[in-house]
Computed example of a mutant assay.
Amino acid sequence: MELQTRQLRYFVAVAEELSFTRAAQKLHIAQQALSAQIKQLEQSLGVTLLVRTTRSVTLTAAGAVFLDDTSTLLAALDDAAERARATHRSENERLVLGFLEGAALTLTEPIMSAFRDRHPGVTIEMRQFNYDDPSAGLNDRSVDVAFVRRPLTTDGVDFEHLFTEPLVALVRTDHPLADRASVDVADLIDELMYGAVTTDPAWNAFWEFEAHRGGKPGRIISHSKTLLEEYQKVAAGVGIVATVAAARWVSYPGVKTLPIADADPSEVALAWPRDTDSALVRSFIDAAIRVRDGRPDLVKRLEEPDPDERTMPTLIPY
């Protein structure tokens, strides 16, 4: 009999929540897919673990026993994996840094340089993530530290604020709003929009202006993984995209960027596992704080961008 660790984690989530809906939201997967995985697990074991009705989910006696042992097993596996990663890091002196497109923009290079000055022998392995994982590898612990954009849904993660960046709308140059110098959120909420390929509810709510819709769903016509894909869809179709002011550095035929005057800004932060014991991570955090506080000129340029600035600075030092 072969049991998948993923199925065990899914079972523990349902057993703890006693709700497929809440467990699916916590795991960031579809409820139907979660139910199918639990059924496969029960078939592999040959026992019923959960009793489902239209109103409740309860553990069977076998399920309660299995939950206790499975929780212990998964905790031991996680501890073993973390010890292995910690040993690997100490042996190889490597810091794994996750980031989304643009990372920390013009703060990225100074932060990286400040860290390298402290640790010239340490290798920084940079891993780029798309919109399908806005945690930039933190949710599955595949990175040590990450540049992220909030809000996003995470568990057991701490943040250090770096800066906030205004939002802009990407529209076709023949769009009725394209002749405007700026727009308000109210001008956009009834427009067809391109969303992001992610199941993170906090991320989607922010970028799709859920707080401004009065309970009405957004008119999302397609989902994208990258900023370039968003540009391509806007240029080829009829929808718009809400994104960050750094998009002004991207020149794409047929697409115009419009500042969104009253939108909440996007927060760029450094994030790391709350339970980390890595001295390298702590040093990287400190380097980032010192650069942020020591370069108010760069922070101001990001928080109060010149819409006419079109020259793209160095963002990611390879």
Score class of each variant (00 low, 15 high):
176 P>C: 04
177 L>F: 07
177 L>Q: 07
178 A>W: 00
178 A>L: 04
178 A>V: 03
179 D>T: 14
180 R>A: 09
181 A>I: 01
181 A>D: 15
182 S>G: 02
182 S>H: 11
183 V>R: 14
184 D>M: 15
186 A>S: 13
188 L>H: 09
188 L>F: 06
188 L>N: 08
189 I>C: 03
189 I>N: 13
190 D>M: 13
190 D>Q: 10
191 E>L: 08
191 E>C: 14
192 L>K: 05
192 L>E: 08
193 M>V: 11
195 G>Y: 04
195 G>R: 09
196 A>F: 02
198 T>I: 10
198 T>F: 00
198 T>R: 00
199 T>I: 00
199 T>C: 03
199 T>K: 15
200 D>K: 04
201 P>E: 05
202 A>L: 14
202 A>T: 06
204 N>M: 01
206 F>H: 10
206 F>P: 08
207 W>F: 13
207 W>E: 11
207 W>K: 09
209 F>I: 02
210 E>W: 04
211 A>I: 05
211 A>F: 00
211 A>G: 01
211 A>H: 13
213 R>Y: 04
213 R>W: 08
213 R>E: 15
214 G>Q: 10
215 G>C: 10
216 K>H: 11
216 K>P: 02
217 P>D: 08
220 I>D: 07
221 I>P: 02
221 I>W: 12
222 S>E: 12
222 S>A: 15
223 H>V: 12
224 S>I: 13
226 T>K: 13
227 L>Y: 03
228 L>M: 03
229 E>W: 01
230 E>S: 14
231 Y>M: 12
231 Y>E: 07
232 Q>I: 10
238 V>S: 07
241 V>Y: 02
242 A>E: 07
243 T>D: 12
244 V>E: 15
244 V>S: 09
244 V>D: 14
245 A>N: 11
246 A>K: 10
246 A>Q: 01
247 A>F: 01
250 V>S: 06
251 S>C: 06
252 Y>E: 01
252 Y>G: 02
253 P>M: 09
254 G>R: 00
254 G>N: 02
255 V>M: 07
255 V>Q: 01
257 T>L: 08
257 T>A: 13
258 L>V: 12
258 L>C: 07
260 I>P: 11
261 A>H: 15
261 A>G: 04
261 A>F: 05
263 A>T: 10
264 D>Y: 05
264 D>W: 01
265 P>I: 13
265 P>L: 13
267 E>D: 08
268 V>M: 00
268 V>Q: 01
270 L>C: 04
270 L>A: 00
270 L>F: 00
270 L>D: 01
271 A>F: 09
271 A>P: 09
272 W>Y: 14
272 W>M: 03
274 R>T: 15
274 R>H: 12
274 R>G: 09
275 D>A: 12
278 S>W: 09
279 A>H: 12
279 A>F: 06
280 L>R: 08
280 L>N: 11
281 V>C: 08
282 R>Y: 11
282 R>N: 13
283 S>R: 04
283 S>L: 07
283 S>P: 11
284 F>I: 05
285 I>K: 03
285 I>Q: 04
285 I>S: 03
287 A>C: 15
290 R>L: 13
291 V>I: 12
291 V>F: 06
292 R>S: 06
295 R>W: 09
295 R>E: 14
296 P>R: 07
300 K>E: 14
300 K>L: 07
301 R>F: 06
301 R>E: 15
301 R>S: 09
302 L>C: 05
304 E>A: 07
304 E>D: 09
304 E>H: 14
305 P>W: 06
306 D>T: 10
306 D>E: 03
